[in-house]
Design a protein around this nucleic acid. Structure first.
Length: 714
DNA sequence: CCGGGGTCCATTTTT
DNA sequence: TGGACCCCGG
């Protein structure tokens, strides 16, 4: 029980409180993972349950992996076997394999990725005569996702909810989509949970089975659960009531994905007799960083409220720096990093955390110039890459010939002379006869509808597939994969490719093949890839990390750079437009998450001008900068009033640049007393013109100071 | 059927 | 600015 001594009183309380519902409100850096892992070790040590009787849910696969390692560390190094640990999706998927027949699937169902979802929806929408330019499959997919987040099956979506999208046909599309998935023996991400909820609700015996199995349930990042996840958990926990959830309402940043902060705010009501334990002692950041983060989050109305106390000293002040443009910002960050390096800070202890991934490029380019080693996290995932998806499609067709989406994907990859018109003919035939694409091909190579050349190509391809399929049982699957990629000439296609990225693709394919060796069968590998596999990142190397603030949740670094704190970008205009105050508060939580990643130092910056869509756009500093308490920051700006910035030749490229754009050319009509329109504040009257800044009395919002580029004369 | 060149559009955030 | 899509000529 030595491990208990390493805990502070509230942590220890959370670890020892094993029975009944428990909510641990764990602020950033308060040892949340330590509590979860120690608690698990404690259960095992007291023989309260076997590993197989414990269900642990994490938000990411990375978190699951970390937890696994830390628990085995606590248990003396031996890996814990049989423990139900993973993301909601991975765990629900595992359950669904056992009971797929109850929702009309067979246990070898495929999990289709978002790209397949969109292609499927595109077909269905075109069949329904919907203008997919106006109503894109992408938006349709996200509508369906949001419904699934809320556990709404097609019959539960009301007409009102369905809305005007796709001329009100969206529910019908949703229904058709679900039925198509069933035909394809496939599931999307949301279905994994939704199907399990349906099964639990309609088959008490199955639920009973899981009730008997799981004596303890633990959930990480509870503030980011959605309705479906909540329902799934509640169904599983309703018998034993031994559910422990850990979370921080101030770090809820996935509302846009259907997460409900309400879940954590309501926990006490949902689980009667729930105990609440707060962890407020922070072991990660300096007091200055915490004070800064607190200053921001304090502006939010809806929160449970807590105050973090640093167990470290006051520390350095937070550097807040204003710059002319994105270019200058990247240069400044580069300089700061070089200074940190001189102070022996390791690159791997430095991170750039951005609001949106398009902001990463500027830093990447600058780092290349300076020779600063970096890695970008959160680009396309390993399994999202084209070559990986292609390779997997081949394997999917081998494993499941009727996987139409996979077959369509690789039918003409590499190029075999099977173009659009051929594929269309095949599809028409398949649809007309209610058979799969694969079967349609088998039939049509006997007929005369297709040209002889295409018939021959298809016939050869089918023979190849038959051959590969016959090898499944007697060839190790990594070897089979290698054979498939060679025989199909897919590998050769990339080897012959002269483009820069082709070589990397070949390497990725090799990596894919070698990764397969860790799995006992092709199907189990395919499952892993769909749900778990992430870009392999080598933590070992000493590189600066560039990632989004969302991606940084749960991580920590000595020094953190937070660039582009500009109105419209952060907080994001779109979020505010779509979700109003709720959206703004989520942005604020994101700022809180970003800041609290830092242990020792934080650098916040904003640029007055930034290239967006190839256009110069002027931005004013984020309101979050103003929310930072004065006494913990060191504020500085390179943006000065224009005249002082002109050199003897009358030239200042930077100053010039900052004023290029819609500002100068189009706004000459602005004058005191003139009427203007502003995206966020509406219409108003100009009171004062001060350079490129305007004081305006807005009809609805009162007097504000805004940049000229933000308004239009009306 | 394929590739080149033009046009149009867009950027959050992710299991 | 650059990636996705479309139309046209080989």
């Amino acid at each position: 029980m030595e491990y208990l001594n390493a805990l502070n009183p509230s942590q220890r309380q959370a670890v020892e409180q094993l029975d009944g519902p428990l909510l641990v409100l764990a602020g950033a850096g308060t040892g949340k993972t330590r509590v979860l892992t120690t608690r698990l070790a404690h259960i095992l040590n007291l023989y309260k349950a076997m590993p197989a009787e414990i269900l642990s849910v994490t938000f990411t696969n990375k978190a699951a992996l970390e937890m696994k390692e830390r628990v085995s560390g606590l248990m003396g190094g031996a890996p814990v076997e049989g423990w139900w640990l993973g993301t909601f999706h991975a765990l629900a998927g595992r359950m669904l394999r056992q009971h797929a027949d109850l929702v009309g699937l067979s246990s070898n169902y495929t999990i289709i990725d978002p790209d397949d979802v969109q292609r499927l929806l595109k077909q269905l929408m075109m069949d329904a005569g919907i203008d997919i330019k106006k109503y894109t499959p992408k938006i349709a997919a996200s509508l369906i996702d949001r419904w699934k987040d809320r556990a709404l099956t097609p019959d539960k979506v009301t007409a009102e909810e369905s809305g005007d999208f796709a001329a009100g046909k969206m529910v019908a599309i949703y229904r058709a989509y679900q039925s198509r998935l069933r035909t394809l023996n496939a599931c999307d991400f949301g279905d994994l949970l939704l199907h399990m909820i349906t099964i639990f609700q309609t088959n008490p015996d199955v639920l009973e089975k899981f009730h008997k199995r799981f004596k303890y349930i633990m959930v990480d990042e509870y503030q980011d659960t959605n309705v479906a996840q909540y329902l799934w958990l509640r169904l599983l926990a309703q018998k034993s009531k031994n559910i422990c959830v850990v979370g921080d309402d101030d770090q809820s940043i996935y509302g846009w994905r259907g997460a409900e902060v309400g879940n954590i705010l309501r926990f006490e009501k949902d689980f009667e007799g729930a105990k609440i334990i707060r962890l407020e002692e922070n072991y990660r950041s300096t007091q200055n960083i915490l004070t800064a983060a607190d200053g921001i989050i304090d502006n939010n109305e809806s929160r449970l409220g807590k105050t973090l106390r640093s167990q470290k000293g006051e520390g350095e002040k937070i550097i807040v720096h204003g710059l002319w443009d994105g270019d200058a910002e990247a240069r400044w960050v580069g300089e700061q990093i070089e200074q940190l390096q001189r102070k022996q800070v390791k690159n791997s202890e430095i991170a750039i955390l951005v609001r949106a991934s398009f902001l990463m490029r500027e830093f990447e380019e600058r780092f290349i110039t300076l020779g600063i080693p970096y890695r970008i996290i959160g680009g396309p995932r390993f399994y999202e890459r084209m070559e990986i998806r292609d390779a997997l499609a081949y394997m999917r067709v081998v494993a499941q010939p009727h996987d139409d989406l996979a077959l369509e994907r690789i039918l003409n990859t590499p190029k075999r002379g099977l173009g659009n018109s051929t594929v269309q003919k095949l599809y028409d035939f398949a649809r007309g006869n209610g058979i799969s694409l694969y079967d349609a091909i088998l039939t049509m190579i006997e007929g005369t509808t297709l040209k002889p050349k295409q018939r021959e190509t298809l016939s050869n391809l089918m023979q190849q597939f038959e051959g590969w399929r016959n090898s499944v049982d007697n060839t190790p699957h990594p070897e089979l994969a290698s054979i498939i990629l060679d025989d199909s000439l897919y590998m050769d296609m990339w080897k012959a490719d002269k483009s820069i990225e082709a070589q990397g693709r070949v390497e990725n394919l090799r990596e894919l093949i070698s990764a397969m060796a860790d799995f006992e069968s092709l199907p189990s590998f395919l499952e892993h890839v769909a749900l778990v596999m992430e870009a392999s990142l080598d933590n070992s190397q000493d590189k600066v990390t560039i990632m989004t603030m969302h991606g940084a949740k749960g991580l920590e670094f000595d020094c953190v750079f937070l660039p582009a704190w500009e109105e419209g970008l952060f907080p994001s205009q779109r979020t505010m437009d779509e979700n109003g105050l709720k959206g703004l508060e989520e942005e604020r939580r994101l700022a809180y998450v970003g800041l609290t990643r830092a242990r020792e130092c934080a650098f916040i910056s904003n640029a007055a001008s930034r290239r967006t869509y190839g256009q110069w756009v002027n931005n004013i500093p984020s309101r979050f900068i103003e929310e930072l308490p004065e006494d913990v920051i060191e504020k500085d700006s390179e943006i000065q009033v224009r005249s002082s910035h002109w050199d003897s030749s009358g030239h200042n490229p930077m100053a010039n640049r900052a004023f290029i754009g819609k500002t100068t050319e189009s706004q000459s009509g602005l004058k005191v007393g003139g009427r203007v329109f502003h995206n966020a504040f509406g219409e108003g009257t100009i009171l004062v013109i001060d350079g490129n800044k305007l004081d305006i009395v807005f009809d609805a919002q009162g007097r504000k100071r805004v940049l000229e580029s933000f308004v239009e004369a009306v």
